[in-house]
């Protein structure tokens, strides 16, 4: 990266890798706003959502991003995430919609007793598709990256979904250059992934460069934890159900990915600053997904969930 005062030679490429990724994401967002009727941004409060929101503000500046934020709240979100979510909505002045499956929660669906695939379908997938239908959104931005998972690696930037939000991986529209085809029939929707070509490390490098505000959970701190089923869980509130013999112990941990707190694993770490996290990232030997119980059930689980309407 050139230092501030130095101009590069006139024929050198003045844009670096992150500049290009940012420019691409901005271009994608503007295409959606220009070509769809009622877009919405899925805001999960995680780091990818944070980057996506930051880029949306840049894309439409000085206007406010011309779409609302939608948070799918499972009811088992980390308290710090909800606080951060509300703070960001206030700071950006964007409308925040929160969707929650009251009926399932009232019927007793919870991350301790309900099998994870059923829990995910009811509290996340179906809540999402119902919210999109109820508001009549025809396009939804998501922060998914292709480097996360092998089915995501196959998905287009504009992911076309049929009337029941299903992804048909064997019949995707060709996507040439940066010409996106946003045409669809009534009842059909598209999911749009502006960060498709970003890696986890790109996201962190961008957060550092742009000073993107993140939930504190991404930074190491001493938190009450316990090991369960291969995940290092953080006991976030008094609703946590201990199994016989289990007990919370303080450990220095941080998260690489965030979701429902009883289903998301932390990593042991002392990295409390961005440079420290970046340094750890470069030597990491496990993938980000290893921390997500919802992604672990079956080998083809992401593809299956997408066919059900998941992001």
């Amino acid at each position: 990266m050139p230092t501030a005062a130095r101009l590069p030679a006139p024929d050198a490429d003045p844009l670096d890798h992150l500049d290009r990724l940012e420019a691409e994401a901005i271009h994608i967002m503007r295409e959606v706003v220009a070509e769809t009727e009622k877009p919405v941004m899925l805001y999960s409060v995680g780091k990818d959502s944070a980057v996506m929101l930051h880029i949306a503000r840049k894309a439409f500046y000085p206007a406010r991003p011309p779409f609302p934020l939608l948070h799918i709240a499972s009811g088992w979100d980390f308290a710090a995430m909800l606080a951060h979510r509300d703070r960001m909505a206030a700071e950006t002045g964007m409308e925040l919609l929160v969707a929650h499956n009251d009926a399932a929660a009232a019927a007793g669906v919870n991350p301790f007793d309900t099998p994870t695939p059923v829990y995910t379908r009811l509290m996340l997938t179906e809540t999402l598709t119902a919210a999109l239908d109820a508001h009549g959104f025809d396009a939804a931005f998501g922060g998914a990256r292709r480097d996360e998972e092998k089915a995501r690696a196959k998905e287009r930037v504009f992911s076309f979904r049929g009337a029941n939000h299903a992804w048909d991986p064997k019949n995707q529209r060709p996507e040439l250059w940066n010409l996106y085809n946003a045409r669809k029939r009534r009842g059909e929707t598209i999911r749009v992934f502006p960060l498709s070509n970003w890696t986890e490390l790109d996201v962190w490098a961008y957060v550092a460069r742009e000073q993107v505000p993140l939930v504190p959970l991404y930074f190491a701190a001493e938190r009450p934890t316990l090991w369960r089923d291969g995940l290092l869980l953080v006991v976030d509130d008094e609703r946590f159900r201990f199994r016989p013999g289990e007990r919370a112990e303080p450990r220095w941990v941080r998260f690489r990915t965030l979701g429902c707190y009883p289903l998301t694993g932390a990593v042991e770490s002392r990295a409390a600053t961005l440079p420290a996290i970046l340094a750890e990232m470069r030597t990491a030997r496990v993938s980000e997904r290893a921390g997500r119980a919802v992604d672990q059930d079956e080998s083809a689980s992401m593809e299956k969930k997408k066919a059900e309407g998941y992001f």
Binding site: M1, T3, A4, D16, H17, L18, D147, T199, E200, L201, D202, A205, A208, R209, E210, Q211, L274, P275, L278, A279, M281, R282, A284, R285, S287
Partner: peptide, 23 residues
């Protein structure tokens, strides 16, 4: 111009192959 953490990010990224990659 950006300053601060970004500069060390880039320098360190050149140090070796990394899971996920950066330029």
């Amino acid at each position: 111009a950006r300053s601060g953490p970004a500069a060390d990010t880039r320098a360190a990224a050149g140090a070796g192959a990394a899971v996920g990659g950066a330029a």
